[in-house]
Amino acid sequence: MNLLIDSFISAISLVISMDKEMINIVTVSLKVSGYSTLFASLLGIPIGFLVAFESFPGKRFMITCLNTLLAVPTVVIGLFVYAFISRRGVLGFFDLLYTQKAIVIGQTLLILPVVAAFTIAAISRIDQRYRKTAMTLGANRLQTAFVIFREARYGVVAAVIAAYGRVISEVGISMMLGGNIRSFTRTMTTAMALEYDKGTFTLAVALGMVLLGLSFGMNLLFHLFQGRVRS
């Protein structure tokens, strides 16, 4: 019990004093997960939209595949990307391994299916009558797509939130591809794993608190955004 109280008190003082190292770790985390969410959204939303909007052979199979990929463990993605960008791998000469770019690549791959699958779900839920109405009112395909997308934006934002939550909290990819280099690729989750290994829990608890705080803040932000969209 003592341990918990001690860690908690030190953690609060760490957060209040805005410890330089802690700020650095938080910044790295936000940066990489921000980029990967951005890239995954830029790719995943159009993919999801196309799959949901168009009908083509193998559509159901593709959706099943995407849903399966939702559950891919981070270490599998980590290994996969590692094999490519390792010095002995195909893309070895780019010297990408153990950089922030490597984490972004891995995390983007991780959440691409999340964004796509959730977008598909959001678009498919939209009543078919919207589509028909838009078309009878003389909208072309692009305009129809726009109408449907606008109706589904609530679900699409939810897709982005879910994706962001997955990357900010994952540890496997950050550790395997980022390498946990202090003040370069050390993220909140890898730092916590390390502090646990070292047996000093202060920074770990402090970072855990910051992580929770950030997630809460982010969700609040999205919530406000969604609320505005709805009204």
Binding site: N180, I181, F184, R186, K198
Partner: peptide, 11 residues
């Protein structure tokens, strides 16, 4: 040179 040439990886 922390994070530049001195890589402290904690592993």
């Amino acid at each position: 040179g922390l994070g530049q040439w001195y890589l402290s990886i904690g592993q």
